[in-house]
């Protein structure tokens, strides 16, 4: 662990760190300095990343109900994974959300971002208005949406009825429940929009001017100038979006509980997960139910390990990106 100050000219990234011919005690001191900065975070990594991952793998081979000590059962939990109809439903739902919700949010955010980047007057107010919903706590936002989209008496269907449209059942219909969650997600695109907006405003003006001198129309300019310039940001948003959607829990849990209208007294909120007809039953919900409702923690850890593998694969895409980006930085 040798310290050199960053930014020394000529240091190439990835090359072994420059070693000064410093005395041993000096190097030890430097090491201590780094440790004094990093110790809490390193302990944090060991305790909250390395340990739980290893423990998860171990537990996945055990029968464990939280009450009795874990019992080694070999591959039993893993073979159950192959025959578990619920995991199929849950994974399909999560995949649906990844495929629909992530692009929908990105397109929506890009659209509003483009709109704001072009309009000069009032952009500040629009920006605030578009952004505010992103701040709403997910539980509150979900409650609000289930109320707004109540099939019989909700404001949305009431308004639709005024113009002669019979609204669908929204959160109460297996076909519409997930699209309704997408609408909820679109309501909160503000955070993504701000990122895209910043990226869009960073595109050098000269490039547009040059393109328009070449006679490129708006769409061609977007394709040739805007898109390449903001593609790193898009990639980052896509990867983080996928990761966020893989852990989609709160909205699905709350929407199901409220839309089902069933009292969960004595059964707990997890008794309504997936309403209606498992259409909002996501992978993390199943993990929670298996572990903490049915008390099958061994199998819950199988699900956790699988989720980890998927998440890390997606993250790898981002890390590849970081490699170039770590390098180009200094």
């Amino acid at each position: 662990m040798a310290i050199t100050t960053v930014g020394a000219p000529g240091t190439t990234p990835g090359a072994p760190p420059a070693r000064r011919s410093a005395p041993r005690w000096w190097r030890a001191r430097e090491r201590l300095t780094v440790l004094s900065f990093m110790a809490p975070a390193l302990i944090g990594l060991a305790l909250f990343l390395v340990y739980p991952l290893l423990a998860s793998v171990y537990f996945s081979f055990t029968k464990f109900d939280l009450i009795n000590p874990p019992q080694w059962v070999g591959l039993r939990n893993w073979t159950f994974l192959l025959h578990d109809p619920n995991v199929r439903t849950a994974a399909t739902n999560t995949l649906w959300l990844v495929v629909v919700m992530v692009p929908a949010r990105m397109l929506g955010a890009l659209g509003t971002g483009l709109l704001l980047a072009r309009s000069r007057r009032g952009a500040g107010i629009y920006r605030t208005l578009f952004y505010l919903p992103a701040l709403a706590p997910p539980v509150a936002a979900t409650l609000a949406f289930v109320f707004l989209f109540k099939p019989g008496t909700g404001p949305v269907n009431s308004l639709l009825a005024h113009v002669g449209i019979e609204g669908p059942l929204w959160f109460n219909s297996p076909q519409w429940a997930k699209p309704s969650l997408v609408l909820l997600a679109l309501w909160g695109i503000g955070d993504l929009m701000i990122i895209f907006l910043a990226a869009l405003l960073d595109v050098p003006k000269q490039l547009y001017e040059a393109a328009s001198l070449d006679g490129a129309n708006a769409w061609q300019q977007f394709r040739a100038v805007t898109l390449p310039a903001i593609s790193p940001v898009l990639l980052f948003a896509a990867v983080t979006g996928v990761i966020q959607t893989l852990q989609y829990f709160t909205q699905a849990a709350v929407a199901a509980s409220v839309a089902s209208g069933q009292a969960t007294t004595g059964g707990g909120i997890s008794s309504t997960f997936g309403y209606p007809e498992n259409s909002t039953f996501t992978y993390p919900l199943w993990l929670y139910v298996v572990g903490f409702r049915y008390g099958a923690l061994g199998y819950a850890n199988v699900l956790a390990v699988v989720l980890f593998v998927v998440a890390i694969t997606v993250t790898a895409i981002l890390l590849r990106r970081f490699r170039t980006f770590l390098g180009s930085e200094r």
Binding site: F48, L49, Y51, P52, L53, A55, S56, F59, I243, L246, Q247, F249, P284, L287, Y288, G291, L297, A300, N301, A304, V305, L307, F308, A311
Partner: peptide, 8 residues
């Protein structure tokens, strides 16, 4: 995802 490390 937080669910991965939840149980341990």
């Amino acid at each position: 995802p937080p669910q991965v490390t939840t149980v341990p």
